[in-house]
Nucleic acid binder design. Structure first.
Lengths: 239, 239
DNA sequence: CGTGTTTTTGAGCCGTGTCAACGATAGTGG
DNA sequence: CCACTATCGTTGACACGGCTCAAAAACACG
């Protein structure tokens, strides 16, 4: 399987590629890099000259506060480009880390710029990817601002399930191997470790969704979405 | 004064424009539209075929929850394009409203696409503007997630002062006519009206910053920035 | 001046944080 | 295969930051 497959799949999930566009994407020089769990790809303050595509595993971005607290600002599944924005804004205001063991594909900015120059469609799709990223940020602002712990958690679970489904990452029984520790979930939702634990327990005991042994099993999608106030439109998936 | 002036000033604050690029921006057809305070420009769910430039006044974007709560996700000063993203993602996941009496310039998407096609520099700068928008979102996630009420409020004030200064909107005494009600500030920071009031009071009584009669006066920038943990890098201003 | 909005303040409550301890699990080396 | 260790998850008790309710004061504007 070519290294560009996950990227092409991702772009096709949010738009339409012609044969020519696929060939152009295929012309990107992608150098794979294997990462162990918790390995940093980029540090706050770095100025990258390349971007990465997540090929397997899961990555996260987070900001670190002076007191050591962390705010996770995004999770990234295969096919996504977590630092695509570094093409047009230099300094990283956050760090990028592999949550699990992972493989990423590195692509030089110059190479990306060439593709963007040659195909307005690809330019639009890559731009679109950064805009969907931003739409997710908006939901996370709301998760952390106006939704309570339960609704925010439910919203994040809905989002992750929907994104995992869109890239075919769900197992045949509909569950998803969710690789986050509760600490990481809490850091994404602005909750303490203790409280995210209690919130997940509440969802489990309500037979809405169960996170156990690293597996997310949604028991009642209707109710989960209703608790969350979830509307998947913001993910701008084609189907 | 030409209607494109605020946009050109904005683009020059985050990048460099050649004479040709300026001429291209100048070739945009901009139709002004006057808005009264609280008037909606776009509603959640709309699919715009044009974008707007804030020419005067202040605009805000917000999401509305089922229980009627609001989460403000951004404020927009003159020169900014609050719905530039609608170029590449259709459905609005939030509403756009004029906070004050305002004038915006409407630009057709097709017209913008023409300019983007003709100038890689302008494409890059407009993309960059949406990416800076996203960088601000990340800080707001942190404001609402891991920073407490005081630090979050301080951070927002730092950000607004910096952005207002960058477009020359500060008065000669260094104050800024901040047009938000405390309710709107609370909706941006995920705080209740009562608590944002108390938080502003604390900053005032500490001689750090005073918000009075719609005017923001920073009394001790050092301390405000320190309370906030503010680092302006994420705004990616040229200087 | 009167009326509606916005700001301010007090009192009490509740959601979430902190602290502390224990249990479960997985990986490691003997 | 077991003992050891590190990490992660779970639970209880209690503290506190921020919310709600309610009412008054200040302000804006016709």
């Amino acid at each position: 399987m070519s290294l560009v497959e996950p990227l092409i799949a991702k772009l096709q999930s949010i738009g339409t590629l012609s044969a020519q566009d696929r060939a152009l994407v295929d012309s990107l020089t992608i150098t794979p890099r294997r990462l162990v769990a918790q390995e940093y790809l980029l540090h706050q303050g770095d100025v990258p000259t390349q971007s990465v595509i997540v090929l397997s595993g899961v990555a996260a971005r987070f900001q670190e506060l002076k007191d050591g607290d962390r705010q996770v600002v995004s999770f990234h599944l295969p096919g996504e480009m977590p630092d695509l924005h570094s093409l047009y804004i230099g300094h990283m205001d956050h760090s990028l880390v592999a949550i699990t063991e992972a493989v990423v594909g590195q692509v030089a900015h110059d190479d990306l710029r060439r593709v963007i120059r040659e195909s307005p469609t690809l330019m639009g799709l890559l731009w679109r990817e950064t805009l969907i990223d931003a739409a997710i940020f908006r939901q996370w602002i709301t998760n952390n601002g106006r939704r309570g712990a339960l609704a925010g958690t439910a919203h994040l679970l809905c989002e992750l399930m929907t994104r995992a489904r869109s890239i075919g990452a769900l197992r045949s029984d509909g569950t998803w191997p969710m690789p986050f520790t509760q600490q990481q979930l809490g850091d994404a939702l602005g909750l303490s470790l203790v409280h995210i634990n209690r919130t997940l327990k509440a969802l489990r005991e309500d037979n809405v969704a169960a996170v156990e042994r690293g597996v997310l099993r949604v028991l009642d999608w209707e109710r989960l979405a209703q608790i969350a106030g979830f509307d998947p439109t913001y993910l701008h998936l084609k189907r």
